[in-house]
Simulated assay, not measured.
Amino acid sequence: MAEDDMMSILKKRGILYPSFEIYSGVGGFCDYGPLGAALKNNIMNLWRKYYVDREGFYEIESPTIMPRETLKASGHVDNFTDPMTKCSECKDVYRADHIIEETIHRDVEGLPDEKLTEIIEENNIVCSSCGGKLEDVKSYNLMFKTSIGVSGKKIGFMRPETAQGIFIAFKRISRFYKDKLPFGIVQLGKSYRNELSPRQGVIRLREFTQAEAEIFVDPNDK
């Protein structure tokens, strides 16, 4: 079934709608309708039933806005990126590895920006909208940036994944467990990624619900 046909069915049946559609919409966001919200809640409840009730994990809840220092230490500030290229004419933006794969059907995931630029030039890959020349590939950070407090001096980001809240709280939670390993922690909540090329439906959303489970073990007693 084509993606457009699937989205039409989801909208008609009250499962999923494009967000802000009366204002022309914004890519990467969706609303769950009455049936969609019920289905999503059922899935989350089943997930909790397995990890919390059956496996004995403990659930925590941490903020969705995180200070820059936290995400700098985790590597997200420097490395949570996608390769981006922009049309020099119409300014449309593309994820470089995707437009290469779609044009010449070559897997280039993980290659450095310089190599991706070279491949684009060698294969004369151009803007799919206007045929314009694509600019050099640059790494683009996927996190939504914000400021914490009215002064604007404290930089923060919307969390790109739920795992970091678990890792940051490890010391506190370890004390809760009386420093006994192994133990498991779960978190279920919103994450945010400023995707270069979000798609219809729930693929590559800019705001989404993410379920994370982490098990901490003694490396000498696995």
Results as ranks from 00 to 15, higher is better:
56 G>S: 06
198 P>G: 04
76 H>Y: 04
185 I>Q: 02
85 T>N: 08
66 M>I: 14
115 K>L: 09
26 V>A: 08
75 G>S: 08
189 G>I: 02
86 K>N: 06
124 N>C: 11
59 E>N: 12
14 G>F: 03
108 V>I: 03
194 N>I: 04
165 G>H: 00
184 G>R: 00
148 I>R: 07
46 L>F: 10
162 T>N: 08
181 L>N: 06
206 R>Y: 07
134 L>G: 01
208 F>D: 00
46 L>Y: 09
8 S>P: 01
95 R>L: 08
28 G>D: 05
181 L>T: 09
188 L>P: 02
114 E>T: 11
196 L>F: 03
111 L>C: 07
192 Y>H: 12
13 R>A: 14
115 K>H: 02
212 E>V: 05
17 Y>D: 06
163 A>T: 04
20 F>E: 04
155 I>C: 03
115 K>Q: 09
123 N>D: 12
108 V>S: 00
7 M>Y: 08
106 R>G: 00
66 M>S: 11
102 E>M: 09
68 R>V: 11
50 Y>F: 14
192 Y>L: 04
126 V>N: 12
54 R>A: 10
212 E>I: 03
135 E>Y: 08
171 K>R: 14
149 G>A: 14
10 L>S: 00
67 P>G: 14
150 V>T: 15
123 N>Q: 08
193 R>H: 06
124 N>G: 12
5 D>L: 13
90 C>F: 12
203 I>E: 03
79 N>M: 12
99 I>F: 01
82 D>L: 12
133 K>Y: 14
28 G>R: 00
159 R>N: 07
185 I>Y: 01
55 E>C: 15
